[in-house]
């Protein structure tokens, strides 16, 4: 079957199987920043933004999101132009293998978009979907806190369109 989606601001028509997960569709179409960890909703590696909200793409059948808007890590920052959240996570030493990072950046992005002055507890809640096997979370939380402080001086430049 065919499905129309907006991915990172661009309209796309994709050929999918009705049993295909959004995680599979995205990876099959070159969005490899979306990671497969558990496939059961437990690890958060596959988190993307659906209409601006973090969701586990392994838990969604692509057919269910016809005409909706998806943001992957590729739509947030690039190697040449990383997003401030990505930069601050690097600076804080919050990345080792990096497998959990794309999902965490997207959850942090959604959190900071609605609250640029989150408490530590709010950050913990905002990233409660994510397992990190390497860093132990302290540095991730620190990186997000630093990103929030930095972004609060120019929020307009840090967030994309409304649906992101």
């Amino acid at each position: 079957m065919k499905i129309n989606l907006t991915i990172n601001g661009k309209s796309r028509t994709l050929e999918i199987h009705p049993s295909e997960t959004l995680l599979e569709t995205l990876r099959n179409n070159g969005f490899n920043g979306v990671k497969f960890g558990c496939g059961t909703g437990d690890c958060g590696a596959c988190v993307i933004l659906l209409n601006g909200e973090p969701v586990n793409s392994c838990q969604i059948l692509t057919a269910a999101v016809e005409a909706e808007s998806i943001t992957t890590i590729e739509g947030i920052g690039s190697m040449d132009k990383p997003h401030p959240i990505q930069e601050e996570l690097v600076k804080a030493g919050a990345i080792q293998c990096g497998y959990c990072t794309p999902g965490i950046v997207l959850s942090a992005y959604a959190l900071l978009k609605s609250n640029l002055n989150p408490s530590i507890d709010e950050i913990k809640n905002g990233i409660d979907s994510h397992l990190c096997r390497c860093t132990g979370y302290v540095k991730i939380i620190e990186g997000i806190k630093n990103a929030a402080e930095r972004m609060s001086s120019s929020p307009k430049h840090c967030f994309g369109n409304k649906s992101q």
Binding site: G41, L50, E53, P54, V55, Q59, S107, D128, S129
Partner: peptide, 9 residues
């Protein structure tokens, strides 16, 4: 219940 990203579903 569950996690932030799951509660969105």
């Amino acid at each position: 219940a569950a996690s932030t990203s799951l509660r969105n579903l």
